[in-house]
Simulated assay, not measured.
Amino acid sequence: MTENEISKIVFETGLKIHKKLGAGLFEHVYEECLFYELTKSGLFIEKQKLLPIIYEDLRIENAFRLDIIIENKVILEIKTVDYISSNHKAQLLTYLKMTNCKLGMLLNFQSDVFKNGVTRMANHL
């Protein structure tokens, strides 16, 4: 399955959750709902995956944590904030570079309209 096909499933799933729950809950609630729904799709999904960073000869265990990674291709970063900042985008771009994944999605469930809270970011896609 391609990154774009996965992102379509993620968007539709996020929209379903947002319609049912609305805005205003904690990030982990949306993350759990996404994980639950996406696992029903048959995709390989990991949540709260801890990854190391290697700096020269130094290996730093658990240097960062991915909210959700799908098929080792698409990273989801879940937010419940008033707006997506440049820091949020930089965080996701760093995750993409560190994992060599090609597509990341910021999903801000705080947005009144779900599609306005979705940001796709590509890493050499």
Rank of each mutant, 00 (worst) to 15 (best):
K8M: 10
I9W: 00
I9V: 12
V10Q: 02
F11N: 13
F11Y: 12
E12M: 10
E12T: 04
E12R: 13
T13F: 00
G14L: 01
L15V: 11
L15G: 07
K16R: 14
K16L: 09
K16N: 13
K16W: 02
I17V: 10
K19Y: 00
K19H: 09
K20M: 09
K20I: 08
L21H: 07
L21A: 03
L21Q: 08
L21C: 06
G22I: 04
G22T: 06
G22C: 01
A23P: 15
G24A: 08
G24M: 03
G24D: 06
G24V: 09
F26T: 13
F26I: 12
F26M: 14
F26L: 15
E27K: 08
E27Y: 01
E27C: 03
H28P: 11
H28W: 09
Y30Q: 11
E31R: 13
E31G: 05
E32L: 06
E32C: 01
C33N: 14
C33M: 14
L34D: 08
L34C: 07
F35L: 10
F35V: 10
E37T: 10
L38N: 07
T39Q: 14
T39H: 05
T39V: 03
T39M: 12
K40I: 02
S41V: 13
S41P: 05
S41A: 11
G42Y: 09
G42R: 14
G42K: 10
L43R: 15
L43K: 10
L43T: 01
L43M: 10
F44G: 11
F44Q: 14
I45S: 07
E46L: 04
E46P: 08
E46Q: 14
E46K: 14
K47R: 15
Q48E: 08
K49N: 04
K49A: 05
L50P: 05
P52Y: 00
I53D: 05
Y55E: 04
Y55V: 07
E56D: 15
E56M: 04
D57M: 06
I60M: 10
N62V: 05
N62Q: 13
N62I: 03
N62A: 06
R65S: 00
L66T: 04
L66F: 02
D67A: 02
D67P: 00
D67Q: 02
D67M: 02
I68A: 00
I69Y: 05
E71Y: 02
N72G: 09
N72Q: 15
K73C: 07
K73I: 08
K73H: 09
V74E: 10
I75S: 14
I75Y: 05
I75C: 07
L76C: 05
L76K: 08
E77Y: 11
I78Y: 05
K79A: 00
K79I: 02
T80C: 13
T80V: 06
